[in-house]
Design a protein around this nucleic acid. Structure first.
Lengths: 145, 145
DNA sequence: TAGGACCTTGGAGTGCACTCCAAGCAAGCG
DNA sequence: CGCTTGCTTGGAGTGCACTCCAAGGTCCTA
């Protein structure tokens, strides 16, 4: 894997105040590519990331928290555009609390619905699996393909 | 919605033997578009569908069953290519039982993992939601964005 | 101070899963 | 018979979420 630890740091997060991570450290934390991190910033899914005096990105613990949330939302199937909308609400300040609340509640419902769908699928899979398990050797005709 | 019932049929499935559905009936059953149904056939995700004497598709109850399964697998996030692989195994006959069994079991594990991920996301959402609920009106500073 | 690994940008390219188009044949109705 | 709606095909186009490229500047270690 060749993860060079440039500044003698451990693999984990550093305490607030010493949290200025390079893009490759963030890659290691999140599993995203550097390309994707830059792209997230371009489309407004990230706040503008702090820069070193030479213009290189320096991510903070707060940025990492945000990326964790994005990662969670991403695997609910939420479109990136919706996450960008949420990011905009955060940037717009406190007066968007209500809208954020509604958005999160709607997302919660989506997640519950998706879990239900998956449970339905699981039931179908289990029926098929037990069909194939019973038919250790092929029987007459198979309808449950 | 304007669902014209061309042959005086009810909206539901007909019994085996009278099951020769047009593509638009299948659209109504599955929610897929006609384009998608033809595309599924082209890429080998469907068996070759029976045709009328003039070459129009006539789907059977069995085809509908298959589309139900495909729909379930689709919403687990399984790539279409993997579903095509499964369809090929079915076409190849009984001697692929073992491989189908393994594929279904692996899919089952994926589904379980995905449900777990979603539960994790749900927990995060619930924490944020209760944060926004508590902060009925904005308090000092908001870290949990 | 030299070398290699790492970082920057705008813009172009990729893969997936559809989605649509044009041109023409088919089916049911008055 | 003509009309409207539906179905056929191969191939091209779309939208999303990345993913990569070229050309060049930066950082660290020997």
């Amino acid at each position: 894997m060749t993860v060079m630890e440039t500044t003698g740091t451990r693999t984990g997060r550093r305490p607030d105040g010493e949290d200025r991570y390079t893009i490759s450290e963030v890659v290691a934390f999140t599993g995203l590519t550097a390309h994707t991190l830059r792209w997230y910033e371009r489309i407004g899914l990230m706040p503008h990331i702090d820069r070193s005096h030479t213009g290189q990105r320096r991510y903070t613990n707060r940025d990492l928290d945000w990326l964790d949330l994005v990662g969670k939302l991403r695997l609910t199937g939420m479109p990136v555009a919706d996450m960008v909308r949420y990011a905009e609400l955060v940037r717009e300040g406190d007066h968007t609390y209500g809208e954020r609340f509604e958005l999160l509640k709607a997302t919660r419902e989506d997640v519950l619905a998706r879990i239900d769908e998956l449970r339905g699928t699981l039931a179908v899979l289990d029926r098929k699996i037990s069909f194939y398990a019973d038919a250790g050797r092929p029987l007459a005709s198979e309808r449950s393909r």
